[in-house]
Amino acid sequence: MIELLRVTKSFHPGKSNQFTALQDVSLTVEPARVTALKGPSGSGKTTLLTLIGCMARPTSGRILLRGAGIRGIPAGAGNGEVEITGLPERFLTGIRRETFGFIFQHFNLVKGITVLENVMLPAYPTGERCGAVSQRAMELLALFNVARHAASRVDRLSGGEAQRVAIARSLINRPSIIVADEPTAHLDTRLSREFMQIVRSLKAEGKTILVASHDPIVYDSPFVDSVVEMRDGRILGGGATP
């Protein structure tokens, strides 16, 4: 479970161009559920995801992670509950790597290397054995129907294939939470629906999924358990409804 308590994020605080992207956001994200963030451009969806995903720190407020699925934190730090706002950088990276899987709007695949290597990328610095990682990567690629491209370079892939490779990559470290920012922005309707099917199967596996999108295919989908609407850095309607 992810809990945000009165989280505020300001960019360039104290300067003339100070900008508050998130204002007093409190939110609870239930585990093994699909939560969609919706809202107009600039409303702070991406900012919220980066805070939850340990990529940036809030200016004020607390973010708590709870549950058995939280890995990558120092042993004995709390009883299954971590406040990520206070952790040093090193542990944040650990949590980001082990607990979160990210799917980006632009897929963010590394050009010039193979599909397989791209999928294995997040696992390299963990020091896990290469054989185990590549086997897992192949399984994921097979799961998403792109196994036959494993040895080809990512530049050759179509948009939908690249998307599925990106999803495979987000799952390589067996995260319990998947964070996706505008995952369907570069996909057509059919591929977007396909993506939602994948989301459904991930949910069935017990993963917590957070999607930011202004695509109705996403937030109107029956697989989405709760929709959080945002505007100008605030949550409308007082937060999630399970």
Binding site: K111, G112, I113, E117, L121, Y124, P125, T126, G127
Partner: peptide, 22 residues
């Protein structure tokens, strides 16, 4: 120890792929 070596090897793998690109 093993993990450290493996981490180096993994990153070396990626470094080599990266060099082979150009």
């Amino acid at each position: 120890m093993n993990r450290t070596v493996e981490r180096h090897r993994n990153i070396l793998d990626f470094a080599l792929s990266s060099l082979l690109r150009r």
